[in-house]
Design a protein around this nucleic acid. Sequence first.
DNA 1: TCTTTGTCAGTGACAAAGTCACACAATTGA
DNA 2: TCAATTGTGTGACTTTGTCACTGACAAAGA
Lengths: 224, 224
Amino acid sequence: MNIEKTLQNSFSIWPTLTSNEKNLLFSACEVREFHKGDIIHRGHFDCTGLIIIETGSLRSYITSPNGKEVTLYHLYRHDICLFSASCLLKDINFEVEIACEEETTCLLIPTSQYETIISTSSTIFQYTNTILAEKFSNVMWLLEQVVFYSFDRRLAEYLINQSYNRDEDILPFTHEKIAKDLGTAREVVSRMLKYFESEHMVRLERNKIYIIDLQLLSLVSIKS
Amino acid sequence: MNIEKTLQNSFSIWPTLTSNEKNLLFSACEVREFHKGDIIHRGHFDCTGLIIIETGSLRSYITSPNGKEVTLYHLYRHDICLFSASCLLKDINFEVEIACEEETTCLLIPTSQYETIISTSSTIFQYTNTILAEKFSNVMWLLEQVVFYSFDRRLAEYLINQSYNRDEDILPFTHEKIAKDLGTAREVVSRMLKYFESEHMVRLERNKIYIIDLQLLSLVSIKS
DNA sequence: TCTTTGTCAGTGACAAAGTCACACAATTGA
DNA sequence: TCAATTGTGTGACTTTGTCACTGACAAAGA
């Protein structure tokens, strides 16, 4: 892996940084591997540091006392995971968890080092706030989805987006995974998928969803 | 109104500011009055500036295409309303509306002036990010409430909090107002309040809710 | 004072979504 | 090969949201 290249792709402000700032970031990086199912961060219990994804994906989510989950957002190649260093954000008083969804390679800037970096570089400190604002925007989008739109619409939109992101019309998902992403129960997902299948929008197999009629799905995803 | 005193109460960093920074803020302030029902801010349409509340209260909320509303948070005495200057926050890509709930007196720092202030004072810029992080926390709390907890619990908690904030066991609320705060339909609120009344937790009158049994309500508000 | 108008609350029927308790099929792996 | 695990399907039921309508009350004007 080319560390500098990864940093360059992840920090959109990279070109504006001084060589000193670039060096600070560069020399603080360690390469890390995570495995599917690893819990990387759990509320205030951990504070590993800033994670920059090279390959693979992470999932940021919240958990209820009863074990129900809702995905806040996914992190993919070149995304920066801020909440894995949430102890640095002292004005944030909520807890998110971060889990590894598939084999993931990333750069890690340990908390203590990132702390000194942001205290010396106001540019990087500002960029950190930019990332935070982006995550805020993600959560607002989720909130709107949850409180304003019906489930068929949300599920259709989810399938379309996932299919688009992966450039694939076969999604290797279990109903359980989708339920956790959308914050509902597995049965509810199964039921709606069955309905979509009866309308010939998708075809279902164990661990697989074939997107058959994207146009019909789109209609569902924008219905009022 | 003593402008400096209000600034002091609203900016927790006030003691750490230089006299120059204090002056910048002080001289940028204008006093403004808002009236019940005024819409102060509507997504990207307005960008009046930073609002610092002296008396009264504002409500920050989002609206669906069908007109459904959910309150994000309320702003009371000495709170700072950031989203009324949302155009300064370029990484925020969602829209909130802000309405005046009762006669409100406040200080206004117009957008253009606040922009120059944060570009000259990194302390005040940082403080702005602190406020943003607090609002993020508020929204996360709301999201958890909406996706994890049942409506009876949410309503009970709402009544308790409102009663506590106002130090009053009579809430002068319509069911419609509560519905908008909690993001549900008026009938749903009416039904649940009727149920609460049948259990002798509250007594209902037009425009009024009497909290009768706080202990029973508390039980509902913490039930799993 | 009475009447009009708008606001507020109550109700029943129904639809959508979440919960619970299962059954059963496919896959894994000892 | 045969448990054990994982993934899915289903029906009954509860909770929440929606719709259509009713009547009660209050403020303002005739």
